Measured scan of single mutants.
Amino acid sequence: METPSQRRATRSGAQASSTPLSPTRITRLQEKEDLQELNDRLAVYIDRVRSLETENAGLRLRITESEEVVSREVSGIKAAYEAELGDARKTLDSVAKERARLQLELSKVREEFKELKARNTKKEGDLIAAQARLKDLEALLNSKEAALSTALSEKRTLEGELHDLRGQVAKLEAALGEAKKQLQDEMLRRVDAENRLQTMKEELDFQKNIYSEELRETKRRHETRLVEIDNGKQREFESRLADALQELRAQHEDQVEQYKKELEKTYSAKLDNARQSAERNSNLVGAAHEELQQSRIRIDSLSAQLSQLQKQLAAKEAKLRDLEDSLARERDTSRRLLAEKEREMAEMRARMQQQLDEYQELLDIKLALDMEIHAYRKLLEGEEERLRLSPSPTSQRSRGRASSHSSQTQGGGSVTKKRKLESTESRSSFSQHARTSGRVAVEEVDEEGKFVRLRNKSNEDQSMGNWQIKRQNGDDPLLTYRFPPKFTLKAGQVVTIWAAGAGATHSPPTDL
């Protein structure tokens, strides 16, 4: 069977082979063929449309019947899901209200924590001031004790010197008594010597008188005998007598002179000795008097100093007792304040721990409710997609609110971060928990396990030699990294520990 286009092609070929045509004729024939082709295509399209309309009418009838069946089946399910969705919305509203209440309680707890922290800071300042005052008082007490020990040692030294001076005074008084006794003995010996000298002088005078009498008696006897002796021998006898008398007189005078000289010499020697002894004793007595006077003056001065030191010692002891009493009071006050502060800190920690436990429990309940609501929403969306139902505006708002919801909680030295990733086909969620104590904190952990970043959050360098970082993902083997023995993380510095297959460059001390 030939198509209209094939017939047109045969006809035009025959005409062209029979007679030659002009260009205008050819153009018109071409346009006519195009119109015929378009008409044929339109006829085919109309036939196809008619057949499709016939099929569409049958399909519409089948769809109508199916919609009636589906509407009867879905009406009950939709009512049940609407009821469950209403319950879920009520639960979500109650959870939102509970969350708002918990946020209010958390803000209240934070305000109480700030207030307690301020009070604690003030108490710590008072405690530091009390400890500083206690240290000052202890230093003052130590200085006073040192001064007291010095004063006591000086007192003992002065008492020793006073005892020595008293012994010296006793010795000097004994020496003075001995000197006085020697002086009295010398004076007695001097008086005795003077008496003996006077006696010797009297004896000498008496001997002179006796010698004169004997001489006169001898002259008288000789004169008497001379009268009786011969005149011839008188001159010879007289001359001999005169010579004998002269010789006797000379001898007697020599003896008297020698005895006189010896007596005067002895007397002068004894007198000089007595005078020297008297002068020496008088000098000793003067020196003893002077030394005794000086000793008395020094004793008086030392007694005055001793009394002054005793007064100072009594004042120091009184002040020391006052300082000890004040120190005891300060210690009791400090202990009482410290006990009160520790009790308040313990109560505050217990209260904060209780509130944190309650908040953690409520947060766990909220997370469980969020997971249940998310599961209900997934089931509802799956059924709506299976039944090709359009979601209600309320469910769209709930989905938008659930997809944009995120929370971040800080308290008790722990930080909890939650992130949620969404897509049109599926939804997944993960959470990161970080707890830090000390100078070094974990700043970031790569989700794909490529690196771990640490930061020194203090103002001092931290030695991290032979420290270890351990990481384990589920049931995978435990991964451990040990820092070099001499590694030190500077204040405020960040160090990144890269995985072996991350392709990073080893560049200490920032990249390991």
Rank of each mutant, 00 (worst) to 15 (best):
E178L: 15
E178H: 03
E178Q: 07
A179P: 00
A179Y: 15
K180W: 00
K180I: 01
K180T: 13
K180G: 00
K180E: 01
Q182I: 04
Q182L: 06
Q182S: 03
Q182T: 14
L183H: 04
L183Q: 00
L183C: 13
Q184S: 14
Q184Y: 06
Q184A: 13
Q184W: 13
Q184E: 08
Q184G: 09
D185T: 10
D185M: 14
D185W: 12
D185C: 15
E186W: 12
E186G: 11
M187C: 10
M187V: 13
M187F: 07
L188K: 03
L188V: 03
L188H: 02
R189M: 00
R189F: 04
R189E: 07
R189L: 07
R190K: 13
R190S: 12
R190V: 13
V191R: 07
V191L: 11
V191Y: 04
D192K: 02
D192A: 02
D192Y: 03
A193T: 13
A193I: 07
A193C: 12
A193Q: 02
A193W: 07
E194K: 04
E194Q: 11
E194W: 11
E194S: 11
E194L: 11
E194D: 04
E194C: 11
N195S: 03
N195M: 04
N195W: 05
N195G: 01
R196V: 08
R196K: 07
R196W: 01
R196G: 05
L197P: 04
L197D: 04
L197M: 11
Q198N: 06
Q198C: 09
Q198D: 01
Q198G: 05
Q198L: 15
T199D: 02
T199V: 02
M200C: 12
M200D: 02
M200P: 04
M200I: 14
E202F: 05
E202D: 01
E202I: 02
E203V: 02
E203P: 01
E203I: 01
L204M: 15
L204K: 14
L204I: 13
L204D: 04
D205F: 10
D205K: 06
D205T: 12
D205E: 02
D205R: 06
F206V: 02
F206T: 01
F206C: 04
F206M: 04
F206R: 03
Q207M: 00
Q207G: 03
Q207N: 09
Q207P: 02
Q207E: 02
K208I: 04
K208H: 05
N209T: 04
N209I: 00
N209W: 04
N209E: 01
I210Y: 07
I210C: 01
I210A: 03
Y211C: 13
Y211K: 11
Y211Q: 03
Y211S: 15
Y211D: 10
Y211W: 09
S212Y: 09
E213G: 12
E213Q: 10
E213S: 13
E213K: 11
E214G: 14
E214Y: 06
E214T: 14
L215F: 14
L215A: 00
L215N: 00
L215W: 12
L215G: 08
L215E: 04
L215H: 03
L215V: 11
L215P: 03
R216N: 07
R216T: 06
E217A: 13
E217Y: 10
T218W: 09
T218C: 15
T218F: 12
T218N: 14
T218L: 15
K219H: 10
K219C: 12
K219D: 01
K219Q: 09
K219W: 03
R220M: 14
R220T: 07
R220S: 04
R221W: 15
R221N: 09
R221V: 12
R221P: 13
R221I: 12
H222D: 13
H222P: 12
H222T: 11
E223H: 12
E223K: 06
T224R: 06
T224L: 07
T224M: 04
T224P: 01
T224H: 05
R225K: 05
R225E: 08
R225G: 08
R225S: 13
L226T: 13
L226Y: 08
V227A: 11
E228H: 02
D230K: 14
D230H: 07
D230C: 03
D230S: 11
N231F: 04
N231G: 08
G232R: 04
G232C: 03
G232F: 08
G232H: 09
G232W: 11
K233S: 08
K233I: 00
K233F: 05
K233P: 09
Q234V: 13
Q234I: 13
Q234M: 03
Q234T: 00
R235G: 04
R235F: 11
R235K: 10
R235T: 08
E236G: 05
E236A: 06
E236C: 08
E236F: 08
E236W: 00
E236L: 08
E236Q: 08
F237D: 07
F237W: 11
F237L: 15
F237C: 06
E238L: 12
S239L: 08
S239H: 13
S239F: 10
S239G: 07
R240E: 13
R240W: 07
R240A: 13
R240F: 12
R240G: 04
R240M: 05
R240H: 10
L241F: 10
L241A: 01
L241M: 01
L241S: 02
A242Y: 05
A242W: 05
A242M: 13
A242G: 13
A242F: 11
A242V: 03
D243Q: 15
D243N: 06
D243R: 11
D243S: 15
D243T: 12
A244E: 10
A244R: 05
A244W: 00
A244I: 08
L245C: 03
L245K: 04
L245R: 10
L245M: 01
Q246P: 07
Q246V: 02
Q246W: 10
Q246S: 07
E247P: 05
L248D: 07
L248R: 12
L248Y: 10
L248F: 04
A250R: 12
A250Q: 12
A250D: 14
A250W: 11
Q251P: 05
H252F: 08
E253M: 07
E253K: 13
E253Y: 03
E253H: 05
D254C: 15
Q255Y: 13
Q255E: 12
Q255H: 02
Q255D: 11
Q255V: 07
V256D: 04
V256E: 07
V256I: 08
E257W: 12
E257M: 12
E257G: 07
E257S: 03
E257A: 00
E257V: 05
E257I: 12
E257R: 12
Q258L: 13
Q258F: 09
Q258K: 12
Y259W: 09
Y259L: 07
Y259I: 06
K260N: 04
K261Y: 09
K261F: 13
K261R: 12
K261L: 14
K261A: 10
K261Q: 15
E262K: 02
L263Q: 04
L263G: 00
L263C: 08
E264I: 10
E264T: 15
E264A: 06
E264Q: 13
E264K: 01
K265V: 05
K265T: 09
K265G: 13
T266S: 11
Y267A: 00
S268L: 05
S268I: 13
S268V: 15
A269V: 08
A269W: 02
A269F: 10
L271Q: 04
L271V: 12
L271K: 00
L271Y: 07
D272A: 13
D272F: 13
D272L: 14
D272R: 07
N273K: 05
N273Y: 07
N273V: 12
N273M: 11
N273H: 09
